[in-house]
C-alpha cells in the first residue's frame, strides 16, 4: 500500500458516499444515470467474486464488501425507493454498445483463459467506460448539480491516482499489469473534459 493507492481508494469511497448521501438527503436521483450505476454494479460483482476464492487482507475484503453494498444500495434507491425522481428520458446511452465489446475484448485479451480471470478482465474493461452514460447525460442536459460534479470529480480522480500508484509500483516493486494500466488510462482520459470544466468553473465561478 502506497500513498497514491490509499488516496485513490479514499477518493473512490468518497465518490460512492457523496452519491448515496446526495440521493438520500434530496430524496431524489435527478441527474444521475441509472445505466452507469447498473454498469458499476456489474463491474464490482464481476471483479469481487474473488472474495470467495482468495483472501488478501481485511482491508481488501472490507472495501470490496463496502463497494458492493454501496453499489447495490444506490441501485435500490434509484430504481425502487426514489424511482419517481429517476430522469430516464435523459438516460438513453445504449449500454449494450459498451458491454458487448468488453465481453469480446476480455475473451481475446486476458492474463489467463479461466472464468474468474476473464470476469476480472471484463470488469476492468467495463469500468473504464462505465461512466459514459453519466457523462452523456450531463452533456445532453447541459448541466450537472454541483454535488453531481463533486461525485464525478472524486470518481475520476480515483483512477488517476491509481495510475500514479502503478508508476510507483513499477519502480518500487517491479510490478505492473498492462491490462489494468491501459484500461485505467482510458478511464482517466474520458474524464479529462469534465476535469477541465470542473476546475475552471470551480475557480472562476459560473
Amino acid at each position: 500500500m502506497n500513498v497514491f493507492r490509499l488516496l485513490g481508494d479514499i477518493s473512490h469511497l468518497l465518490a460512492i458516499i457523496i452519491l448515496l448521501l446526495k440521493i438520500w438527503k434530496t430524496r431524489s436521483c435527478a441527474g444521475i444515470s441509472g445505466r452507469s450505476q447498473v454498469l458499476f454494479a456489474v463491474v464490482y460483482t464481476a471483479r469481487y467474486l474473488d472474495l470467495f476464492t482468495s483472501y488478501i487482507s481485511a482491508y481488501n475484503s472490507i472495501m470490496k464488501l463496502v463497494f458492493l453494498a454501496a453499489s447495490y444500495g444506490t441501485i435500490y434507491l434509484m430504481f425502487i425507493k426514489f424511482k419517481a425522481s429517476y430522469d430516464h428520458n435523459h438516460d438513453t446511452f445504449r449500454i449494450e454498445f459498451l458491454i458487448l465489446p468488453c465481453v469480446l475484448l476480455s475473451l481475446l485479451i486476458n492474463h489467463e483463459f479461466s472464468p474468474l480471470e476473464i470476469l476480472w478482465t471484463f470488469s476492468i474493461y467495463l469500468e473504464s467506460v462505465a461512466i459514459l452514460p453519466q457523462l452523456f447525460m450531463v452533456s445532453k442536459t447541459g448541466e450537472a448539480e454541483s454535488i453531481t460534479s463533486h461525485y464525478l470529480f472524486a470518481l475520476g480522480s480515483y483512477r488517476a491516482l491509481y495510475i500514479l500508484n502503478w508508476i510507483y509500483r513499477y519502480y518500487a516493486e517491479s510490478h505492473y499489469d498492462v491490462i489494468a494500466i491501459v484500461a485505467g488510462i482510458v478511464q482517466t482520459v474520458l474524464y479529462c473534459d469534465f476535469f477541465y470544466l470542473y476546475i475552471t468553473k470551480g475557480i472562476y465561478g459560473q
Binding site: N60, S174, Y176, A180
Partner: peptide
C-alpha cells in the same frame, strides 16, 4: 519484472 495481475488492488 512481474506481469501478474495486481489482485491486491480494488
Amino acid at each position: 519484472v512481474s506481469l501478474k495481475p495486481l489482485k491486491d488492488e480494488l
